[in-house]
């Protein structure tokens, strides 16, 4: 959709990595610091959208072979799945659990089922946002 744009492309190459790293940080830290599934997902989506804008759809599609509609659906299913898991354990739907574990490198670490739920949220957000942008920009 764009002509060759050297500056944008070379900046994007660097920036996308930074944005992706940052969004992963936001996502993982969401439990204790600002961030979480929505923000992490959205900024990941923003990074992907940036890729599309600077390199064009076809080129990116060659490299990221993924159906974002399915990604969104998988996200929703993960979220529902975590909810159902608590039903299986005899708790009301969507009861989250957390506990602390001693992991080899990280030391005492908190693992929460909320993180899985949040992953579902993030995937749904990425899938939907990219899907919307892609659909519109493909429409020629």
């Amino acid at each position: 959709m764009k002509q060759n744009d050297v500056i944008l492309q070379s900046v994007t190459r660097v920036a996308v990595v930074i944005i992706l790293t940052f969004s992963f940080y936001l996502f993982m830290n969401g439990h204790h610091h600002p961030g979480g599934g929505f923000i992490g997902g959205l900024s990941t989506a923003a990074a992907i959208v940036l890729l599309y804008l600077s390199f064009g759809i076809d080129k990116v599609r060659e490299n990221i072979r993924m159906d974002f509609k399915k990604l969104a659906a998988i996200g929703v299913l993960i979220a529902i799945g975590t909810g159902m898991t608590s039903v299986i354990f005899g708790k009301p739907f969507l009861t989250q659990a957390f506990d602390y574990f001693n992991l080899p490198i990280f030391g005492k670490t908190e693992l929460a089922s909320a993180l899985i739920f949040d992953t579902g949220v993030a995937l749904a957000v990425i899938g939907t946002a990219v899907n919307i942008i892609l659909s519109i920009s493909e429409d020629r």
């Binding site: 929505f38 959205l42 957000v125 939907t128 946002a129 919307i132 659909s135 519109i136």
Partner: peptide, 17 residues
């Protein structure tokens, strides 16, 4: 509001299209 922002995005996209 956090949820509202995200929903707002989706709704805007839908209405726009």
């Amino acid at each position: 509001v956090l949820t509202a922002i995200v929903i707002n995005f989706a709704v805007t996209a839908l209405v726009l299209v």
